[in-house]
Amino acid sequence: MAYMIETEGLTKRFGEITAVDGLSLKVAEGEILALLGPNGAGKTTTVRLLSSILRPDAGWAKIAGHDVVEEGQVIRRKVGLLTEFPGLYLRMPALDYLTFFGESYGLAREEVKSRALRLLKDFGMEAESKKPLSTFSKGMRQKVALLRALIHDPPILFLDEPTSAMDPHSAKMVRDTIRELGHDRRTILLCTHNLTEAEYLADRLAIINHGRIVAQGRVGELKGQLLGPPLLELRLARPLDGLLSVVHELVEVESGDATWIRYRTPDPQSTNPILLRRLAQEGAEVVTLSEVSSSLEEVYLRIIGQKR
């Protein structure tokens, strides 16, 4: 499989501090990977290394097959970077600002202008296109910064906290845009603290702490690895009473009351039908059998807590 982002043993030190420590990642084309981690975990440094702004001290990284050390310029052309802070030239009008960045990627001025106008329109800022960025709200500035990353239509996007400082409506719009970009076969590395956002957007998660990837995989996989088998809740119409022994024969009950129990089973597909059949045979009336959703936050805190 061809990976759009590939790193092996990537390391970056600043004096005595190791910001990124032997990081290995693989992100396939069209995949959205969320990089989660506490402040100072090395997310921004990783993005800077992958954008070929910083040079690694050890290991290697390839973006769309190009080496970050040897082919920095090629990589910067293929990557759209949304930085942690919007970092806009506040005296410039939005359209001029986006045109400037488009031109820096070698695009013709007229082409980039029409593209910038289209993007501003898509994001509901067409009317503000000629206003200086200093007049924009925080959320609007964040949107302009995202448009800056998209202006040259890059196949790879590095998004560092894309919805921070945005109101719920704008944040949803940006999230939907990111989703669309993912459907558009773009490869996206998303650095975020927002776990709900990560769960909603990302195909896979990588949790980074102290510069190292401490866990990675799909959300379900991570939950399975860290929280064990899924937690199921069974509710009955009448009290269980003598039926509890039947349940205990088949599953390990974690908690419960007169009319409900919570249990775990490593193989729910085969266990649950047997359990339901047995309960029906005993005359029990099952109201619901459902999985108790475990949050990503639980997973995240468990991983970070273990490694601290």
Partner: peptide, 14 residues
Amino acid sequence: ERNTLEPLLATPIT
């Protein structure tokens, strides 16, 4: 200081 440098450094400008 104004955080405007990083976006500039991320472009292909040498």
